[in-house]
Write a protein that binds this DNA or RNA. Structure first.
Length: 118
DNA sequence: CATCTGACCTAAT
DNA sequence: GATTAGGCCAGAT
């Protein structure tokens, strides 16, 4: 895997976007998990930045903090929206948190291979 | 060039 | 659980 410092910013963004797009419906992932899968260990912050800036349509609502908390301020407009989108696909949100043990995405070998290509 | 900011994370307390 | 400290680093100031 070609990772981190061998990648240009553009490549990093592409890896992150590709990874996020691969999160299945009804599952969630943390910023750090996405960074790891994208070959960018320790770059959780970059995932947030890309998500915030990109125009690409992505399942942004499936990204949570490592604690399972929604990524936005409690009861903010965005948090409410995220909660609604998650519940619509079967993810249980207690107040402002999801039980990762129940809904975190566990990438299959096929997922890993797909993410490694390109 | 220096500092600050931030859809974050882990480890330690 | 909560808090603190340190890590991360591109882009804005």
């Amino acid at each position: 895997m070609e990772l981190d410092y061998y990648k240009s910013m553009k490549q990093k963004h592409e890896s992150i976007i590709k990874t996020i797009a691969h999160i299945p419906e009804g599952k969630v992932a943390s910023y750090g998990q996405i960074a790891d899968l994208a070959g960018l260990p320790g770059r959780a912050r970059l995932v947030g930045k890309v998500l915030k800036e990109t125009d690409v349509v992505l399942p942004w609502h499936r990204i949570l903090r490592s604690s399972g908390e929604l990524a936005f301020p409690r009861y903010s407009e965005m948090a409410t929206k995220q909660k609604r989108l998650l519940e619509k696909e079967g993810v249980v949100v207690n107040k402002t948190r999801v039980r990762l043990a129940d809904f975190q995405w566990q990438p299959s070998m096929a997922d890993m291979i797909f993410l490694l290509e390109g």
